[in-house]
Amino acid sequence: MAIVADHLGLSWTELARELNFSVDEINQIRVENPNSLISQSFMLLKKWVTRDGKNATTDALTSVLTKINRIDIVTLLE
Rank of each mutant, 00 (worst) to 15 (best):
Q28V: 06
S11P: 00
N69I: 04
I73K: 00
L10Q: 14
L76V: 14
E32F: 00
L45R: 01
E78V: 09
V49R: 14
R30L: 13
S63Q: 13
S41D: 03
V74C: 09
T13G: 06
R51Y: 03
R70V: 01
S41F: 02
L19C: 02
V74M: 03
L15W: 04
L10W: 11
L10T: 12
P34L: 01
Q40R: 06
A60Q: 13
L61T: 00
N33W: 09
V31C: 14
R17Q: 08
V49C: 11
T62I: 06
S41T: 08
W12V: 03
I68E: 00
S63I: 08
N69H: 07
T75H: 08
S39F: 06
I73R: 01
K54S: 14
A16P: 01
S41W: 00
E25I: 03
I29D: 02
L8P: 00
T62A: 14
N27R: 11
N69W: 00
D72P: 06
D6I: 03
Q28M: 09
L77E: 01
I38Y: 09
A5P: 01
E18D: 04
A16D: 02
V23R: 13
S36E: 09
H7T: 09
E32A: 12
S41C: 05
E14T: 09
I38G: 13
T75V: 11
N55K: 13
W12Q: 05
R17W: 11
N55I: 08
G9C: 03
V74Q: 05
N20A: 10
D72W: 01
A56S: 05
Q28W: 03
E14S: 11
A16N: 02
E78H: 13
T75M: 13
V49K: 11
V74L: 06
I38T: 10
S63R: 13
L45I: 07
T62W: 06
I26A: 05
D24I: 06
F42C: 09
L8V: 03
P34Q: 12
I3L: 13
K67R: 11
L15H: 03
T75P: 08
I29H: 06
K47F: 10
E14I: 08
L19N: 02
H7Y: 06
L44P: 01
D59N: 08
I26P: 01
A60E: 15
I3G: 05
E14M: 09
A16L: 00
T62Q: 09
K46Q: 15
L44C: 10
T58S: 15
N20E: 11
S36I: 02
I71L: 15
T75S: 13
L8N: 03
D59L: 10
A2C: 11
N20Q: 07
V4P: 01
L44I: 07
E25F: 03
S63M: 12
L15G: 01
L15E: 03
D72T: 01
T57H: 09
E25T: 07
V31D: 15
V74T: 10
T50N: 09
N55R: 12
T66P: 05
A60T: 08
L61P: 01
R51Q: 00
E78D: 13
I73S: 02
F21H: 02
A60K: 11
S63G: 13
P34A: 08
L65R: 01
I71D: 15
V74N: 03
K47C: 07
S39K: 13
H7Q: 12
L61R: 06
K54Q: 12
V31K: 14
I68F: 00
D24R: 08
L19T: 01
L65W: 01
F21Q: 04
T62Y: 10
D24S: 09
I38V: 14
P34V: 00
N33K: 09
L76K: 15
A60Y: 06
K47L: 11
N35L: 04
L65N: 06
N55Y: 12
G53E: 11
S22P: 10
I26V: 11
G53V: 04
A60L: 12
V49A: 14
M43K: 09
R17I: 06
K67W: 04
D6W: 05
D52Q: 07
D72C: 00
A5G: 07
I3C: 08
T57M: 06
G9M: 08
V74G: 04
L19I: 07
S11Y: 05
I3W: 08
V49W: 07
E32M: 11
L15C: 06
Q28A: 14
S41A: 14
L10Y: 11
D24W: 06
V4R: 01
E78G: 15
G53K: 10
T58I: 15
T58K: 14
R51L: 02
S39P: 04
S11N: 14
D6E: 15
I71S: 12
H7V: 09
I26L: 00
S22F: 04
I38W: 12
I73M: 05
I38F: 09
T75K: 15
E78I: 08
N55G: 14
M43G: 14
L65I: 02
G9E: 08
N33S: 13
T62S: 15
K46W: 05
R17K: 15
Q28I: 06
L10V: 14
L37S: 10
E25N: 04
S39R: 13
L10G: 12
T75E: 15
I71H: 09
E18V: 10
N33M: 10
D6T: 08
Q40V: 01
N69P: 02
E25D: 14
T13K: 05
I68A: 01
K54A: 13
L8H: 00
N55D: 15
E78C: 08
T62H: 07
L37G: 06
T75A: 12
N33F: 11
T57C: 14
I68W: 01
L19F: 06
E32W: 02
N27M: 07
T66D: 06
L45D: 00
K47P: 00
S39G: 12
G53A: 06
A5H: 03
A5R: 05
K54L: 12
N20R: 09
G53L: 02
R51S: 06
L65C: 05
I26G: 00
T66M: 12
R51I: 04
I71Q: 15
L77M: 13
I38S: 15
A56T: 05
E18H: 07
N35T: 13
L76I: 15
S63A: 13
G53T: 05
N27T: 09
Q28C: 07
V4I: 09
M43E: 14
E14K: 07
S11E: 07
I71P: 12
L8K: 04
D24T: 10
A60R: 11
K46C: 06
